[in-house]
Design a protein around this nucleic acid. Structure first.
Lengths: 222, 222
DNA sequence: GTCTATAGGAGGATAGAC
DNA sequence: GTCTATCCTCCTATAGAC
């Protein structure tokens, strides 16, 4: 990372959050020391404990700041779709876009830090530390509940457990699409460096194909 | 974890690998100390450095041991399919099964440690530490190359970049399916605790649906 | 509010006895 | 091959000066 983050933009608290977000993404939680965070942010070592209480609470605040906004946008968009439909069912593709497309659009905001944050978030779903998974689940609970309910209504003929699993699979595909590009790049040479907007259409095609796939496709289609 | 791993099964080196695999999965690499590994394995602290040289090399060996076997099975299976087809094209569903199905079957081996390892592996694709991604890429390179070539042949009408991306998305969906069940369980209440074989058919349906999805589905299907 | 200084502990690694 | 003892680095957190 550059030190541009350290140059007096925002107050101490914001600078710590911005720097921590980048370093957590680059080095993980355990791999990022408070010394590293505070020195890159150009603030004193004691500032983290003063402003956040502990490293653990700093981690939580890094996520809370962005997730509150992300899930607010998602629910607003879902509300708009429901208002438009006026009681009729919403197309699954629109529900998927309101949830996953919103995340992808945040991930394409490189300058505002959304890109960094979404890469971090994608990795964090599988974070081993229990407290991380716990507060992530709390942050997500309301939003996921609404979107699952919308999908249940949009696909009344599909078993709800199947929808739940496929929602899970979609989360995984999206997280890797954002967080894990490095891994496959190393394997395959490189992806062509095209604009991120194509990632969005590519991922959306894939997610909708998976969501709508016939059941027992594999067993039957041999 | 229990201490059953520590009870004199195998030699020192194997016991260290078995214990490290479990602890890395539960607590991450940085979160797992060599003191924790050696005490759980019932061996001396110095044993890791004696047998592996360093913690970093231990991590590599944990992966090398299992990945060599996994990718060997995958390539064997792909070779069988190619022999059966005898020059004709192979169904994409069979190629996908040879790669992802083989991984899922390893993941369903709870007693032999395959389950633990695959959960660890799923998390590790997005590991921040560069050396981890680097040797994972090396372990995978040959196998992925063969499978991509097979998919290119099986789907000659589809743009190769699109196949590459979809392979990436499939990796993500599978990894989360195995590694990240906790996250969604917390959000949604719980998945029903059914047998893992249904996970395999569910995931395969999803993957094939995504792989075969029409292009620009999202943009067009509004 | 922000700093310095330091407590108090855990980390990986190694030297050398057996 | 395995153990004990130890080095030195790094960590989070806090007490207390300014």
């Amino acid at each position: 990372m550059t030190d541009s983050l350290a140059k007096g933009h925002g107050d101490t608290r914001s600078r710590i959050l911005d720097v921590a977000e980048v370093l957590f993404m680059e080095q993980g939680f355990d791999g990022t020391s408070m010394r590293s965070i505070t020195s890159h942010a150009g603030v004193n070592l004691a500032a983290v404990n003063y402003h956040f209480g502990s490293k653990e609470q700093l981690i939580q605040e890094v996520f809370h700041r962005r997730l509150t906004e992300l899930n607010r946008i998602r629910l607003t968009r879902l509300g708009e779709l429901e208002a438009e439909a006026g009681g009729a069912s919403i197309k699954p593709s629109r529900i998927v876009d309101a949830f996953f497309g919103t995340a992808l659009r945040m991930a394409s905001d490189v300058e505002g830090g959304g890109h960094t944050f979404m890469r971090l978030l994608g990795r964090t779903y599988t974070e081993p530390q229990a407290f991380v998974r716990k507060f992530l689940a709390e942050e997500y609970a309301e939003c996921v509940e609404h979107f699952l309910a919308a999908l249940y209504r949009a696909l009344p003929e599909v078993d709800r457990n199947e929808i739940l699993w496929r929602f899970h699979f979609m989360m995984g595909a999206m997280s890797y699409a954002i967080a894990g590009t490095d891994a496959l790049q190393l394997v395959t040479g490189k992806f062509d460096d095209e604009d991120p907007s194509r990632l969005e259409s590519r991922l959306m095609s894939f997610l909708l194909g998976g969501l709508r796939a016939p059941l027992a496709d594999f067993g039957a289609a041999q």
